[in-house]
Write a protein that binds this DNA or RNA. Structure first.
Lengths: 122, 122
DNA sequence: CTAAACCTTGCCGTTGACGTGAAGGTCAAG
DNA sequence: CTTGACCTTCACGTCAACGGCAAGGTTTAG
């Protein structure tokens, strides 16, 4: 498939896919015309990328992690086991983020409580 | 207290505090010299700001919410109850973020499982 | 054969929360 | 009174993940 079709199926834009390639996250084949050619499984790969991005990982971290993800032959796999540390680091980062978010949500909850509770009590 | 001391106690930088003021999050008094003067409770206010920022709220949203937070007299309070909608919106945003982070963490967990499991199994 | 609808590379623009000097006023110690 | 550590206000720089546009090649439908 070509870039627009992949973008459509993965729910993103051609521009983003070119950016991912520039960052080493995708390695599409090239047709004689120069057009990029993607395998069907690239859809899953892109979805993984988006998920990890939305989790706050940057493209560098994803580039290290992505080769380890199953159903992904798009990128060659370096020595995987050595990445366990990096994976753990990112996992901790995510957990920390979740904790902070939960704390912030608790603050908002207190405010919402106070706000809706004080409706008819001058 | 002056700006550097507040920055130290709140774990941030003078630059950030000036930025918060520029965004309407802080309203320190001014000495005759032009120096900013902060009340001790500003430490808590700044901590709230950082927490909400780390939760993905932008300074505009925080500026709306901050006046509602107890122990905060630094900023004048607009009509608070009307903000319940905005609070709920942000709350939902945070919940969505938490869900995404949890999903991403689950992906990492699978990778870590697979990685450490495949240690001695060629 | 031609127009529409793709695709390519290249490069500048955007957004948010600051970092980083620059140029100058202020304050406490000696 | 002078030195050094503060402070002030500009004002430009940064970083990440793209958006958008230009100038040109390609493919496909009619």
């Amino acid at each position: 498939m070509r870039i627009s079709e992949l973008a459509r199926q993965a729910g993103t834009t051609p521009r983003a896919l070119r950016y991912y390639e520039e960052q080493g996250l995708l390695r599409p084949a090239r047709l004689a015309s120069g057009y990029r050619h993607y395998e069907p499984q690239a859809v899953g790969t892109v979805r993984h990328i988006q998920l990890l991005l939305s989790a706050g990982l940057n493209t560098t971290a994803i580039a290290e992690i992505l080769p380890c993800i199953p159903d992904d032959v798009t990128v060659l796999a370096p020595t995987c086991p050595e990445l366990l540390d990096a994976l753990a680091v990112e996992r901790n980062r995510i957990t920390t983020s979740i904790d902070r978010l939960a704390a912030a949500r608790a603050v908002l909850d207190r405010l919402i409580q106070a706000g809706s509770g004080a409706r008819d009590q001058p």
